[in-house]
Design a protein around this nucleic acid. Structure first.
Length: 609
RNA sequence: GCCGGCGUAGCUCAGUGGUAGAGCAACUGAUUCGUAAUCAGUAGGUCGUAGGUUCAACUCCUAUCGCCGGCUCCA
């Protein structure tokens, strides 16, 4: 028996969670095998907030099965068995698992590089192929909960055997488990699909699956974000264009999408020509560039286009606003000389940073460098990556390097935003592209009066408006800051008699350009307040006889509650100031269980099984 | 596309072989009220769609569409 080499030093929280979760997966595997004696085990790694294990089972699992598995797990935990590590000679290990019908394990052993140890872990009645490490005793895994069952493929291969995956979570303390489960509940409440319906923002219809229908309030939200996008991009020197969305396939043959992305495009035939709806803005923005002659003095040329995009995503992958077939990217392409990469990247990082700080998102930057299948000249890559790195360093923002994670056409920076519930979303992106300029034979006239090739920078700040709105709705729990709220104020008359004054107040605010509703129904004020609160309207204005006589409104805000009276003009001035400053007047409820451990970086490749 | 679950009134949901139910919303009337739900009445569904089994189907079977949890994909 080998002692754990890390035992002598203090483990980090991430390491402890890794062991705990991995161990809990083993316990679950034993429980499943007790119920289904022939069940073969695939892989069971820890993941960011729990673990899963994939099984090949004779029948689909039900919720009742999960209850039964949990019960058995509790017994194994209570037995407080020790996790014992053993190293086996490769042949012996192979025979061991073959005899037990554990073909997946044999497959794994066959893939373990020669020279590496093959180890197994025993706990109670389970013996599993496993690199470890593990908790020392099963009792550590007391605070677990099984969450869901789903399908999965062996090695993620669609053509391979279909397995059943059970997800679960486990935490060092009962309190943390409870917090985590509360977090899940909170996330459910804030689900943008639920809030989108409740707040009247958007809806879906089966006759256009994967495409949102925006209601008036959602449209206002969308347009307000668009206005902000337009304004901030004008300030940053971008020129906006409007291109078609349907193209002859020749465009995509030139860009390379026809070969590599055709299955994801909507195509149609008309008058003997084959057309496709564009899945991204880059190819046709190249056409724009080519429509004019460019001098090196014109660069960087910043061209933005919020074109309507369509991608024919597989039916089973669609989900709310985060996975759609029709969407708009806040896209732009910057054409630069190779020597301008660094400064332009710096500009873009600044723009992205300013935008996300408006909503109190935390940004994380990942620098993805040259992959193995890269195209183009190595030297070009090296110089560009060096520039990207300098721009990142100059931004003063911390970043991580994902070596080899870049695209084949260029290195990139991915931005992840961490929302108020501690979840990370990939949104903004900055990608260098050496290939498109080649394919479209883009040139500018250089200093030496000879054509030279520009570099293209693809970049998006929000990502897509649809996805960003989904993230924003969940981040804010549907309570938007005043500048963004579809309805900024609702005037509520105390009695029918005051309705006239309520409309006057609304008119004053509307003249300032504010979005105002009047609730003139014959309902009690408590009822009206309640409804305005559930709609998360930033300003709720109560007017009664007293207020009318004094020429004021009684102000209640979503973020601060009841505030007292003020005149409609003072109120309009306050609200306009907030609109202009894009004030974040939202009380953000933050829950972040991951704050210390950061992203659990778990290597699921190789031997993390 | 794959595995599993689900689809009943505008919304949230109950109804498991015998000709559809609640709450909220809507509409009508009463009430005129000071910061998170006033009362009463009325109306509203060919139970996702198409077939099939049955004397009889929301209920069972098949197909199909959509949604949900995942997988896969993500130039």
């Amino acid at each position: 028996m080998n002692e754990d080499p890390n035992k002598t030093r203090e483990l980090t929280r991430a390491e402890r969670l890794y062991r705990l979760r991995h161990s809990c997966a083993h316990i679950m595997a034993q429980a499943v095998q007790e119920i289904f004696p022939g069940a073969s085990l695939a892989i069971g790694p820890p993941i960011q907030d729990g673990f899963y294990y994939d099984f090949d089972l004779p029948r689909p699992l039900t919720d009742e099965d999960l209850t039964e598995i949990s019960k058995r797990m509790n017994k194994i935990v209570a037995g407080n068995h020790r996790f014992v590590r053993k190293v086996l000679p490769r042949e012996e290990a192979r025979r061991f698992f073959e005899e037990r019908g554990q073909g997946f394990k044999v497959d794994i052993i066959n893939r373990i590089p020669e020279g590496e140890e093959v180890s197994i872990y025993e706990s109670d009645r389970l013996v599993d192929l496993c690199a470890g490490p593990h908790a020392r005793y099963t009792k550590k895994c007391k605070n677990f909960k099984l969450l869901s069952v789903s399908g999965a493929y062996w090695r993620g291969d669609e053509t391979g055997p279909q397995l059943q995956r059970i997800y679960g979570t486990v935490w060092p303390t009962k309190k943390e488990l409870e917090q985590y489960l509360e977090l899940r509940e909170e996330a459910k409440k804030r689900d943008h699909r639920k809030l989108g319906k409740e707040l009247g923002l958007f809806w879906f219809h089966p006759w256009s699956p994967g495409s949102a229908f925006w209601k008036p309030k959602g449209t206002t939200l969308y347009q307000t974000l668009e206005e902000h996008w337009r304004k901030s991009h004008k300030e940053a020197g971008y020129l906006e264009i409007r291109n078609p969305i349907i193209y002859n396939k020749a465009l995509f043959e030139t860009s390379g999408h026809w070969d590599h992305y055709k299955e994801n495009m909507f195509t149609m035939e008309s008058h003997g020509q084959e057309f496709a709806m564009k899945p991204m803005n880059c190819p046709d923005t190249m056409l724009y560039y080519k429509s004019e002659l460019h001098s090196y003095r014109d660069l960087p040329l910043r061209v933005s286009e919020g074109g309507l995009l369509h991608r024919n995503e597989k039916p089973g992958t669609l989900s709310g606003l985060t996975r759609v077939r029709q969407f708009t990217q806040d896209d732009a392409h910057v054409f630069v000389r190779p020597d301008q990469i660094e400064s332009e990247i710096g500009e873009i990082i600044g723009l992205i940073d300013r935008t996300y700080s408006l909503f109190e998102f935390e940004l994380k930057l990942f620098f993805a460098t040259r992959p193995d299948n890269y195209m183009g000249e190595l030297e070009k890559w090296d110089r560009a990556e060096a520039q990207l790195r300098r721009a990142l360093e100059a931004s003063g923002k911390p970043f991580k390097v994902n070596a080899g994670d870049g695209t084949f056409y260029g290195p990139k920076i991915d931005f992840y935003v961490r929302d108020s519930l501690g979840r990370d979303w990939q949104t903004a992106t900055v990608q260098l592209d050496f290939q498109l300029p080649e394919r479209f034979e883009l040139t500018y006239i250089g200093k030496g009066n000879r054509p030279e090739r520009p570099v293209v920078i693809h970049r998006a700040v929000y990502g897509s408006f649809e996805r960003f709105i989904a993230v924003l709705v969940e981040h804010l729990g549907g309570a938007f800051p005043t500048w963004l709220a579809p309805v900024q104020a609702r005037v509520m008359a105390l009695t029918d008699e005051i309705n006239g004054y309520a409309r006057e107040v609304a008119a004053i605010l509307r003249q300032s350009g504010l979005r105002v509703e009047v609730d003139d129904r014959s309902e009690k004020i408590g009822y009206k307040i309640r409804e305005a609160e559930t709609q998360k309207i930033p300003y709720m204005l109560v007017v009664g006889g007293r207020d009318r006589d004094a020429g004021v409104v009684d102000v209640r805000t979503y973020s601060e509650g009841r505030r007292g009276t003020m005149t409609p003009r003072d109120l309009a001035a306050e609200m306009l100031q907030k609109v202009q400053d894009q004030t974040f007047d939202v009380k953000l409820k933050k829950v972040d269980l991951w704050k210390d451990e950061d992203v659990l970086e778990i290597d699921m490749e190789g031997r993390g099984f």
